[in-house]
Protein backbone atom coordinates (compact mmCIF):
# COMPACT_ATOMS: atom_id res chain seq x y z
CA UNK A 1 0.00 0.00 0.00
CA UNK A 2 2.56 2.49 1.23
CA UNK A 3 5.02 1.55 -1.51
CA UNK A 4 2.36 1.85 -4.17
CA UNK A 5 1.37 5.31 -3.03
CA UNK A 6 5.00 6.33 -3.12
CA UNK A 7 5.48 5.10 -6.69
CA UNK A 8 2.25 6.82 -7.71
CA UNK A 9 3.40 10.18 -6.37
CA UNK A 10 6.79 9.71 -8.01
CA UNK A 11 5.31 8.82 -11.38
CA UNK A 12 3.04 11.87 -11.33
CA UNK A 13 6.15 13.95 -11.92
CA UNK A 14 6.59 13.38 -15.69
CA UNK A 15 10.17 14.67 -15.75
CA UNK A 16 11.19 12.28 -13.00
CA UNK A 17 9.60 9.40 -14.86
CA UNK A 18 11.45 10.27 -18.09
CA UNK A 19 14.69 10.73 -16.14
CA UNK A 20 14.30 7.33 -14.53
CA UNK A 21 13.68 5.64 -17.88
CA UNK A 22 16.81 7.20 -19.40
CA UNK A 23 18.98 6.41 -16.39
CA UNK A 24 17.74 2.83 -16.47
CA UNK A 25 18.70 2.65 -20.17
CA UNK A 26 22.16 4.00 -19.38
CA UNK A 27 22.52 1.53 -16.52
CA UNK A 28 21.39 -1.31 -18.78
CA UNK A 29 23.93 -0.30 -21.42
CA UNK A 30 26.62 -0.15 -18.77
CA UNK A 31 25.75 -3.58 -17.40
CA UNK A 32 25.52 -5.21 -20.82
CA UNK A 33 28.69 -3.63 -22.16
CA UNK A 34 30.77 -6.85 -21.92
CA UNK A 35 28.07 -8.70 -23.87
CA UNK A 36 27.83 -6.35 -26.84
CA UNK A 37 31.42 -5.17 -26.83
CA UNK A 38 33.35 -8.08 -25.37
CA UNK A 39 36.75 -6.81 -26.48
CA UNK A 40 38.78 -4.07 -24.79
CA UNK A 41 37.22 -0.79 -25.86
CA UNK A 42 40.61 0.90 -25.80
CA UNK A 43 41.84 -1.30 -28.67
CA UNK A 44 42.33 0.35 -32.05
CA UNK A 45 39.83 -1.15 -34.47
CA UNK A 46 39.57 1.10 -37.51
CA UNK A 47 41.03 4.13 -39.14
CA UNK A 48 41.05 7.22 -36.90
CA UNK A 49 38.56 10.05 -37.01
CA UNK A 50 35.74 8.24 -38.74
CA UNK A 51 32.70 10.54 -38.41
CA UNK A 52 29.49 9.12 -37.02
CA UNK A 53 27.58 7.34 -39.77
CA UNK A 54 30.57 7.15 -42.07
CA UNK A 55 31.02 3.44 -41.44
CA UNK A 56 27.94 1.40 -40.40
CA UNK A 57 30.16 -0.85 -38.28
CA UNK A 58 30.98 2.16 -36.07
CA UNK A 59 27.74 4.15 -35.74
CA UNK A 60 29.33 6.81 -33.53
CA UNK A 61 32.59 6.86 -35.45
CA UNK A 62 36.11 6.45 -34.12
CA UNK A 63 38.43 8.73 -32.21
CA UNK A 64 41.87 10.06 -33.03
CA UNK A 65 43.44 6.67 -32.40
CA UNK A 66 40.81 4.70 -34.33
CA UNK A 67 38.94 3.34 -31.33
CA UNK A 68 35.21 2.59 -31.49
CA UNK A 69 33.36 5.56 -29.92
CA UNK A 70 30.23 3.53 -29.15
CA UNK A 71 32.17 0.81 -27.37
CA UNK A 72 34.06 3.40 -25.35
CA UNK A 73 30.84 5.25 -24.53
CA UNK A 74 29.09 2.12 -23.30
CA UNK A 75 32.06 0.95 -21.26
CA UNK A 76 32.55 4.50 -20.02
CA UNK A 77 28.98 4.51 -18.70
CA UNK A 78 30.05 1.77 -16.32
CA UNK A 79 32.92 3.73 -14.91
CA UNK A 80 31.02 6.99 -14.73
CA UNK A 81 27.94 5.56 -13.02
CA UNK A 82 29.99 3.49 -10.59
CA UNK A 83 32.09 6.47 -9.61
CA UNK A 84 28.97 8.58 -9.13
CA UNK A 85 27.21 5.96 -7.01
CA UNK A 86 30.17 5.09 -4.84
CA UNK A 87 31.23 8.68 -4.31
CA UNK A 88 27.65 9.51 -3.30
CA UNK A 89 27.60 6.53 -0.96
CA UNK A 90 30.82 7.70 0.68
CA UNK A 91 29.48 11.25 1.01
CA UNK A 92 26.15 10.02 2.42
CA UNK A 93 27.85 7.75 4.93
CA UNK A 94 30.09 10.51 6.23
CA UNK A 95 27.39 13.18 6.07
CA UNK A 96 24.67 11.16 7.81
CA UNK A 97 27.04 9.99 10.57
CA UNK A 98 28.36 13.46 11.29
CA UNK A 99 24.98 15.16 10.93
CA UNK A 100 23.16 12.61 13.09
CA UNK A 101 25.68 12.86 15.90
CA UNK A 102 25.74 16.65 15.74
CA UNK A 103 21.95 17.03 15.67
CA UNK A 104 21.19 14.40 18.27
CA UNK A 105 23.80 15.13 20.91
CA UNK A 106 24.20 18.87 20.40
CA UNK A 107 26.65 20.69 22.67
CA UNK A 108 30.34 20.40 21.93
CA UNK A 109 29.84 17.53 19.48
CA UNK A 110 27.59 19.76 17.40
CA UNK A 111 30.02 22.67 17.64
CA UNK A 112 32.98 20.55 16.54
CA UNK A 113 31.07 18.88 13.72
CA UNK A 114 29.73 22.15 12.36
CA UNK A 115 33.16 23.79 12.44
CA UNK A 116 34.45 20.81 10.46
CA UNK A 117 31.63 21.25 7.95
CA UNK A 118 32.49 24.92 7.55
CA UNK A 119 36.16 24.07 7.13
CA UNK A 120 35.38 21.69 4.28
CA UNK A 121 33.01 24.17 2.69
CA UNK A 122 35.69 26.84 2.52
CA UNK A 123 38.10 24.60 0.59
CA UNK A 124 37.61 24.90 -3.19
CA UNK A 125 36.22 21.48 -4.02
CA UNK A 126 37.84 20.78 -7.37
CA UNK A 127 41.27 21.87 -6.19
CA UNK A 128 40.91 19.65 -3.12
CA UNK A 129 40.00 16.64 -5.26
CA UNK A 130 42.90 17.32 -7.66
CA UNK A 131 45.31 17.68 -4.78
CA UNK A 132 44.33 14.36 -3.24
CA UNK A 133 44.49 12.60 -6.58
CA UNK A 134 47.89 14.08 -7.40
CA UNK A 135 49.34 13.20 -4.00
CA UNK A 136 47.81 9.74 -3.51
CA UNK A 137 47.78 8.67 -7.15
CA UNK A 138 45.08 8.53 -9.81
CA UNK A 139 43.32 5.32 -8.90
CA UNK A 140 39.58 4.76 -8.97
CA UNK A 141 39.51 4.38 -5.18
CA UNK A 142 41.26 7.63 -4.52
CA UNK A 143 39.03 9.56 -6.90
CA UNK A 144 35.87 8.13 -5.34
CA UNK A 145 37.04 8.88 -1.82
CA UNK A 146 38.23 12.37 -2.73
CA UNK A 147 34.87 13.24 -4.31
CA UNK A 148 33.06 11.76 -1.32
CA UNK A 149 35.09 13.90 1.05
CA UNK A 150 34.21 17.14 -0.71
CA UNK A 151 30.51 16.26 -1.16
CA UNK A 152 29.39 15.24 2.34
CA UNK A 153 28.86 18.68 3.88
CA UNK A 154 25.36 19.48 2.54
CA UNK A 155 24.22 16.00 3.57
CA UNK A 156 25.59 16.54 7.07
CA UNK A 157 23.79 19.87 7.35
CA UNK A 158 20.52 18.41 6.13
CA UNK A 159 20.75 15.41 8.46
CA UNK A 160 21.57 17.64 11.39
CA UNK A 161 18.57 19.87 10.72
CA UNK A 162 16.27 16.86 10.51
CA UNK A 163 17.67 15.41 13.73
CA UNK A 164 17.31 18.72 15.52
CA UNK A 165 13.63 18.83 14.59
CA UNK A 166 12.98 15.19 15.42
CA UNK A 167 14.98 14.67 18.60
CA UNK A 168 12.49 16.56 20.79
CA UNK A 169 9.41 14.94 19.28
CA UNK A 170 7.34 13.04 21.76
CA UNK A 171 7.90 9.62 20.23
CA UNK A 172 11.63 10.07 20.82
CA UNK A 173 10.95 11.10 24.40
CA UNK A 174 8.75 8.05 24.77
CA UNK A 175 11.66 5.84 23.68
CA UNK A 176 13.96 7.60 26.09
CA UNK A 177 11.48 7.16 28.91
CA UNK A 178 11.46 3.41 28.20
CA UNK A 179 15.21 3.33 28.61
CA UNK A 180 16.19 2.89 24.96
CA UNK A 181 19.86 3.75 24.37
CA UNK A 182 21.06 6.66 22.27
CA UNK A 183 22.32 4.43 19.46
CA UNK A 184 19.01 2.61 19.20
CA UNK A 185 17.08 5.88 19.14
CA UNK A 186 19.34 7.39 16.48
CA UNK A 187 19.41 4.39 14.15
CA UNK A 188 15.99 2.82 14.61
CA UNK A 189 13.73 5.72 15.56
CA UNK A 190 15.01 9.01 14.18
CA UNK A 191 17.00 7.96 11.12
CA UNK A 192 14.10 6.40 9.19
CA UNK A 193 12.19 9.66 9.65
CA UNK A 194 15.18 11.82 8.73
CA UNK A 195 16.13 9.94 5.59
CA UNK A 196 13.66 11.15 2.90
CA UNK A 197 15.22 14.58 2.31
CA UNK A 198 18.68 13.05 2.67
CA UNK A 199 17.90 10.55 -0.08
CA UNK A 200 16.90 13.40 -2.38
CA UNK A 201 20.17 15.14 -1.66
CA UNK A 202 22.17 11.94 -2.18
CA UNK A 203 20.67 11.51 -5.64
CA UNK A 204 21.87 15.01 -6.49
CA UNK A 205 25.32 14.21 -5.10
CA UNK A 206 25.55 11.36 -7.65
CA UNK A 207 25.12 13.95 -10.39
CA UNK A 208 27.67 16.23 -8.78
CA UNK A 209 30.16 13.36 -8.43
CA UNK A 210 29.87 12.54 -12.14
CA UNK A 211 30.68 16.15 -12.96
CA UNK A 212 33.66 16.12 -10.59
CA UNK A 213 35.03 12.93 -12.06
CA UNK A 214 34.58 14.30 -15.57
CA UNK A 215 36.51 17.41 -14.66
CA UNK A 216 39.32 15.37 -13.10
CA UNK A 217 39.53 13.07 -16.12
CA UNK A 218 39.26 15.93 -18.57
CA UNK A 219 42.34 17.42 -16.97
CA UNK A 220 44.08 14.11 -17.57
CA UNK A 221 44.28 13.16 -13.90
CA UNK A 222 41.77 10.32 -14.02
CA UNK A 223 42.54 6.64 -13.62
CA UNK A 224 44.47 5.80 -16.85
CA UNK A 225 43.03 2.28 -16.95
CA UNK A 226 39.43 3.43 -17.10
CA UNK A 227 37.68 5.07 -20.03
CA UNK A 228 35.19 7.25 -18.19
CA UNK A 229 33.18 9.81 -20.14
CA UNK A 230 35.21 12.65 -18.73
CA UNK A 231 38.35 11.09 -20.08
CA UNK A 232 36.79 10.67 -23.53
CA UNK A 233 36.01 14.37 -23.59
CA UNK A 234 39.56 15.09 -22.44
CA UNK A 235 41.05 12.84 -25.12
CA UNK A 236 39.13 14.62 -27.82
CA UNK A 237 39.86 18.16 -26.81
CA UNK A 238 42.92 18.56 -29.09
CA UNK A 239 40.81 17.77 -32.13
CA UNK A 240 37.89 19.94 -31.12
CA UNK A 241 38.27 22.21 -34.19
CA UNK A 242 38.24 19.39 -36.73
CA UNK A 243 36.48 16.37 -35.19
CA UNK A 244 34.34 18.00 -32.53
CA UNK A 245 32.06 14.99 -32.28
CA UNK A 246 34.75 13.19 -30.23
CA UNK A 247 34.19 15.66 -27.42
CA UNK A 248 30.52 16.24 -28.06
CA UNK A 249 29.23 12.65 -27.85
CA UNK A 250 30.51 11.85 -24.34
CA UNK A 251 29.79 15.44 -23.34
CA UNK A 252 26.13 15.03 -24.28
CA UNK A 253 26.06 11.72 -22.43
CA UNK A 254 27.30 13.44 -19.28
CA UNK A 255 24.83 16.27 -19.66
CA UNK A 256 21.84 13.99 -20.22
CA UNK A 257 22.78 11.72 -17.30
CA UNK A 258 23.28 14.60 -14.88
CA UNK A 259 20.03 16.21 -16.00
CA UNK A 260 18.14 12.95 -15.51
CA UNK A 261 19.61 12.49 -12.04
CA UNK A 262 18.42 15.97 -11.13
CA UNK A 263 14.95 15.20 -12.45
CA UNK A 264 14.90 12.03 -10.37
CA UNK A 265 15.92 14.08 -7.35
CA UNK A 266 12.97 16.39 -7.97
CA UNK A 267 10.62 13.46 -8.32
CA UNK A 268 11.89 11.89 -5.10
CA UNK A 269 11.40 15.21 -3.39
CA UNK A 270 7.78 15.35 -4.53
CA UNK A 271 7.18 11.77 -3.54
CA UNK A 272 8.88 11.91 -0.16
CA UNK A 273 7.83 15.36 0.95
CA UNK A 274 4.53 14.84 2.73
CA UNK A 275 3.66 18.54 2.66
CA UNK A 276 3.02 18.43 -1.05
CA UNK A 277 0.82 15.38 -0.87
CA UNK A 278 -2.81 15.55 -1.88
CA UNK A 279 -2.39 18.68 -3.92
Amino acid sequence: MERFAFLGRFARNRGALAGTVIILLVAFAALSAPVFFPTDPLRMVAQPELWPGEDPAFPLGTDSLGRDMLAMLVHGARATLLIGLFASAVATLIGVSVGAAAGYFGGWIDETAMRAVELFQTIPNLIFVLTIVVILGSTLHNIVIAIGIVSWTPIARMTRAEFLALRDREFVQACRSMGMGDFGIIVREILPNALPPVIVLSSLVVAGAILFESAVSFLGLGDPNIASWGRLVGDGRELIRSSWYICAIPGVAIMVTVLCLNLIGDGLNDALNPKLRDR
Binding site: R169, E170, F171, Q173, A174, C175, S177, M178, G179, M180, E189, P192, N193
Partner: peptide, 28 residues
Protein backbone atom coordinates in the same frame (compact mmCIF):
# COMPACT_ATOMS: atom_id res chain seq x y z
CA UNK B 1 11.60 3.14 34.33
CA UNK B 2 9.39 0.06 34.27
CA UNK B 3 7.53 1.39 37.29
CA UNK B 4 6.84 4.81 35.85
CA UNK B 5 5.54 5.41 32.35
CA UNK B 6 4.25 8.40 30.46
CA UNK B 7 1.39 9.35 28.16
CA UNK B 8 2.10 12.34 25.97
CA UNK B 9 0.04 15.28 24.81
CA UNK B 10 0.35 15.12 21.06
CA UNK B 11 -1.24 11.99 19.61
CA UNK B 12 0.41 12.84 16.28
CA UNK B 13 3.90 13.30 17.66
CA UNK B 14 4.08 10.58 20.28
CA UNK B 15 4.16 7.65 17.85
CA UNK B 16 6.94 7.05 15.36
CA UNK B 17 5.25 7.62 11.98
CA UNK B 18 7.43 4.96 10.37
CA UNK B 19 6.78 2.24 12.93
CA UNK B 20 3.77 -0.02 12.85
CA UNK B 21 1.46 0.23 15.82
CA UNK B 22 2.49 -3.26 16.90
CA UNK B 23 6.15 -2.28 16.93
CA UNK B 24 5.46 0.89 18.92
CA UNK B 25 3.44 -0.92 21.55
CA UNK B 26 5.95 -3.76 21.73
CA UNK B 27 8.89 -1.45 22.20
CA UNK B 28 8.99 -1.36 26.03
Amino acid sequence: RRKVQMIFQDPYGSLNPRSTVGRSVAQP
